[in-house]
Every structure is written in structure tokens, then in C-alpha cells.
Design a protein around this nucleic acid. Structure first.
Lengths: 334, 334
DNA sequence: CTGTTAGCGCATTCAA
DNA sequence: TTGAATGCGCTAACAG
């Protein structure tokens, strides 16, 4: 294990091995060196416990081997699973990832962007807290590759997200096919693609089945557990007639679940529930909660590799919007 | 918003403002500069969109403003909440955090350590995957402050963790006071403090109440949902007589929960369940799951500030083992 | 195959 | 109050 923050430098090695610094540099970079010299140098490197100073390398080579990941909420398993995938890709490539949590606050995001850019990250993975950053990221993208994840805020950038419309259509049509006719949707914020598209999928499905779109069955929340809870309770209190709930994300779904339980409703007999995005324990809840599962594995893997390609190739290309299909996991049949 | 990866340098500013680089340097570092000069320079900085190159700064100053956080599992909400707290502390101090997931694999941890050290992080927050790294981190700590979190692998380093013994004693004695006499414990791996101490707390409590310690009521898992599930099922299949379960962590508790449910046991009437560490949905599960809540807020805050102090002061000091009390959150009374 | 040298962008010492 | 010069540790161009 190399533990070198003790300022052992190339020069120290060179002196001790009685060669020049460039020779040492070649050794550690697998350049052309006589086998004998290489052995000698490597021995010294071990002896005095040398490890290259990445900072100096970065200054010289213009690359930091750091990728920034801007996310709105580290507490959401969706992002956590993404990071988990990224880790697998980067671990033996020398890349590290700086995670910047914006708390979904544009003011904080602005600071994070500057910090990250100051640190000269090689690339940026972004789930932005505000569509107004579209221009900013486009500009950044000219020198430092940017890949959007989950929230599409610009068509001029590469992006990867779940096919939200497909996913919600899948879920809602399942409910309809099971005979549910009054589906309450707890939709998300409409300024981001996930909220917007999941809502769109809901509406589209109703139209597809020629079902009326009732105002009273549409509620807008903010992706938090609390809002899912409150909105469901509100519908209950107002005697809105519904036999199913489609929640646009996991946290709101959890809130809805609690509200139903608290008020003595049986799931799914009285009210069926499907939420977009999984949650720990959703499969062991009682009843288990049916969810639209996003393929975090694939999203993470593709985003992670894409940004690497962009960093390494740097050539211009047409930005692509990649959409990944989700899966409806029925955990308790309606 | 400064978007500068476009290589605008101090020198560019200097030339354009018709001063020397050192003057510009002084301006951005709030050194002594005539008010008039400062204005002039600041104007140019804005004009050509200059922002300092942190890499160069780091090379010069020996500080990167990056803190490494080594964790075994980014997927566990415990760590996620910690990161959430750290983010709050660092966001406006210019510090960033590199998250390194080791997947609880020492081989990967070794690589991560080298990568992090190579990147010359200013400090290291560590939940190590192996006690054998104790020496390594002690050595690292001589040049680069290390703070252990959650798992105590060395007494010579600063560390912060939950008071596991107190927490589990709290939980177990609650069960006993409610009349449960046959408590099955699903303990964790004994090589780390969390597993060891939570088990120790369990045993201690039985002794305190003069209850027998029965071999059949002690199972060792590996902190995964699967092991919690399997071990519970095993006990059930073997007709082990128990009226309560104390699970040493959240995931194993979730597994136990599912096993009980699957086999038709009522919680807590037939078998009470308490698990160490919270989980999303634990409060809305049916029944809600009683948990020992670790104060991630305080752990995160203290660890985050401690490492900052160590980085900034650098003076020697006696390493401290800090323990934070947990809370027993009874969500469904036994 | 190996050595010398010139920066990468910045902060700081020393003179002025 | 300002400027010139040095070096942080490294890589790569060039010369030998």
C-alpha cells in the first residue's frame, strides 16, 4: 500500500536510483525503458514509498480523473443506486466521483457548479434542480462534457432517463385492465421531465381507453412523502370517489400508502396503489407495494460509460436523448 | 456564473489589466492592493470570465479542498444521511467530497485509498471494510487527518459512532419489560464494532435481567436482507421458541419482517420485532417497524466538523472516541 | 534508450 | 503598494 502524502517526489527517486527524472517518469508511465533500468527504478520506488502526485499530473496534463455528479437528493435510493453503478465502472480506472447534493436548490447548485468547475473535473453528470441552468450546462459542455440524467433540461446535451411515458402508461393501463375506473394520480412537479412525463402518460392512457379525465382525480405534489400523504388524505376527506392511486414517485407513494392505511382502507381491494420508483421495504410492506422499477443499473452504466467516452474522445457529435424502459413489478395482484 | 475551463489565466488578466500577475493574485486572495488597482483588475476578471485554477493552487499550496469519504455501501440510508449532513457543512466552504464505495471489499478499498491519496485529499472520513487497515490509516493520519465513522478499527484515531451497546440494551430491555422472554437475536458480523457491540448489548441485557442466554436464540447474519430472511425462516422451521426478534441492522430486520409475514405470524402479537437503524417505509409498513434510530444528523455534523478542524489546525492531539446516543422509536407498542 | 529542459497556473519571497 | 522571479511535481519535446 502506497502511503505518500509525505512528499516523496520523482526527483527523490531519480536521485536515489541515479537516473534522470524523465526516466523515472517513463517507468511509472510504462514508457520505453531498458529492463535493467526499470528494475532498478522500481526498487527505489518501493523503498522510499513513492506515489505520483496527481495534482501535478493534472496541472500538466489538464486532466483530473474526477467526474462531478450533481444530484438533487442523495437520500433518494434512485440516485444512490446510480452512484453504486458508477462506482463499479470507475473503481479500477482511477476515476473518482465528487458527489454534489443540491438539495434541489438552484442557489446551492450554482455554487456547486462553480466549485466543481474550479476543481477542473473532467466531466459532469447532472440532475439539475432548475431548467434555467440549461444554457449554463450547454456552455460548460463546450469544454467539459456534460451528460444529463433523469431530468431533461436541454435537447442540446446528451441525456439518459427512464421512458417515463411508457412506464406510467404501463402502470395505469394495468389498473384499468383490472377494472379500476377512477384512478387518482398524485403527480409530481411539472417543471421536470419525470413529473411532466409521468403525468402525461397518465392522461394519455385514460384517453386511450376513452375514460374521462376528471379534475378531482388529479393532484399535484412535490415528490415528498408528506405531500403524498396530505393529498391522499385530502381526497379522502373530500369524498372523492377513487379505486386506485397512481403516484408519480416513490416517496409520494409511501405517503399515499400511509394515508390509506391510517384511514382503514384495504390495499388493493378498496384502493389499488402503484408508485413510480422502488423503495427499500416496498416489497415487504403489507401488502407489498407494486412499483414501476427504473433500471438504475442500465441508466448508471450507460451514463457512466458515455461520459467516459466523451472525456476520452472529445470529438463533436450530435447529442442523443437516450430513454431506458422501466418494468412494472406487480407485487400484489389487483 | 463563472464558466472557466477555457484556460483564462492569471497572466491573461494581468496583461489586459496592465499589472503584474502577482497583483492579480493579490486581488483574488484579498491581499494588499490599492483600491484603484483592485477595481481595475476586478473589472477585467469579470470581462474575460476568469476563475482561478484550483489545480494549480493545490500544487502550490498543498491543499485540495477535497475530503474523501470511504464507505462500504452507498445503498444503505445510514451513509446516505451522513453524506446529506456533510453536504450542508461543506457546500459554502469550497470543500467537496469524493465518495468511494468499497462494496465492503478490502481489495477495492485498497485501490480507493491509493486513488484518494494520489488525489491528495485533505482529509479522510472512513468506514473501513477491514480491521486490517488499522495500521494503514494510522500511518496515513500522520500526514492526512483521518476520522473513523461507525466502525472503530483503531483506538489511535479519532472516531465517531453510535453508542451501540446503549442502543441495543435499550431495545432489548424494552422487549423484556413487555414480558418477552425468548428473544431471538439476528446479530451482525462480529469483526466490526456495530455487529459486535450490538450483540454485546443484547447479551448484557439478558444478564442484567437474569435471563438465560440460549444458543438457539442467537443467529449471526451478514447485514443483508437475505440473511435476515433466511435466519428467521430457519428458526421458524426448527420450531425454535421465540416471541421477539432483535435484528442488529435495518436490512436484516427487513428480511426478518418478511419471513414473519410470509409465515403468517402477527407482529408484534406473535413475535415482536425491533431493528437497529431506520429504513424508508419502516414507519408506514404494516405494522410500522420499531427501530433504534441512529442520530445520523449528529454523527455527520460532528464528523464533518472534526475533520475540518484537523485539516485546518493540524496540531497533534489525543485521539478521541466519540459515541452518540441513539433513540428507540416505538412505532407499534408491544 | 536516456538526459535536459520548458512550462502547466499559481502564491509567495524578495526587491524596489 | 507593486513587480520579478522562483518553484510546487510532473510530462513531453528535443537532443544526444
Amino acid at each position: 500500500m502506497k502511503i505518500n502524502k509525505n512528499n516523496v517526489t520523482l526527483e527523490d527517486v531519480a536521485r536515489k536510483a541515479d537516473v534522470s527524472v524523465s526516466t523515472v517518469s517513463r517507468v511509472i508511465n510504462n514508457g520505453i525503458v531498458a529492463e535493467k533500468t526499470r528494475k532498478k527504478v522500481e526498487k527505489v520506488i518501493k523503498e522510499i514509498n513513492y506515489s505520483p502526485n496527481t495534482i501535478a499530473r493534472s496541472l500538466r496534463g489538464g486532466r483530473t480523473n474526477i467526474i462531478g455528479f450533481i444530484i438533487p437528493d442523495i437520500t433518494n435510493p434512485f440516485f444512490t443506486k446510480l452512484i453504486n453503478e458508477l462506482g463499479k465502472i470507475y473503481k479500477d480506472k482511477g476515476y473518482s466521483i465528487i458527489v454534489c447534493n443540491t438539495y434541489d436548490d438552484p442557489k446551492i447548485e450554482k455554487i456547486q457548479i462553480e466549485t466543481l468547475l474550479g476543481k477542473r473535473v473532467d466531466g459532469l453528470l447532472v440532475t439539475s434542480s432548475d431548467i434555467k441552468f440549461a444554457r449554463t450546462y450547454e456552455k460548460i459542455n463546450r469544454n467539459c462534457p456534460v451528460v444529463l440524467i433523469d431530468r431533461l433540461i436541454s435537447e442540446e446535451l446528451d441525456s439518459i432517463r427512464t421512458d417515463n411515458i411508457d412506464g406510467s402508461m404501463h402502470a395505469v393501463s394495468y389498473l384499468i385492465n383490472k377494472g379500476r375506473r377512477n384512478i387518482l394520480t398524485i403527480a409530481g412537479p411539472q417543471q421536470y421531465t419525470p413529473g411532466k412525463e409521468r403525468y402525461e402518460g397518465f392522461i394519455k392512457t385514460l384517453e386511450l381507453f376513452n375514460l374521462p379525465v376528471k379534475e378531482s382525480l388529479i393532484k399535484f405534489g412535490d415528490f415528498t412523502k408528506r405531500s403524498g400523504y396530505e393529498l391522499t388524505k385530502e381526497a379522502l376527506n373530500n369524498n372523492v370517489n377513487f379505486d386506485a392511486i397512481f403516484a408519480a414517485n416513490n416517496f409520494m407513494g409511501a405517503g399515499a400508502f400511509k394515508a390509506l392505511k391510517d384511514n382503514g382502507y384495504k390495499i388493493p381491494e378498496d384502493v389499488a396503489l402503484i408508485m413510480f420508483d422502488d423503495l427499500d421495504l416496498a416489497d415487504v410492506a403489507n401488502p407489498p407495494i407494486t412499483v414501476v422499477i427504473q433500471s438504475t443499473k442500465e441508466i448508471g452504466r450507460r451514463a457512466g460509460n458515455l461520459i467516459l467516452d466523451l472525456i476520452e474522445n472529445k470529438e463533436k457529435h450530435e447529442p442523443k436523448q437516450i430513454m431506458i424502459k422501466s418494468t412494472l413489478e406487480i407485487r400484489k395482484s389487483v
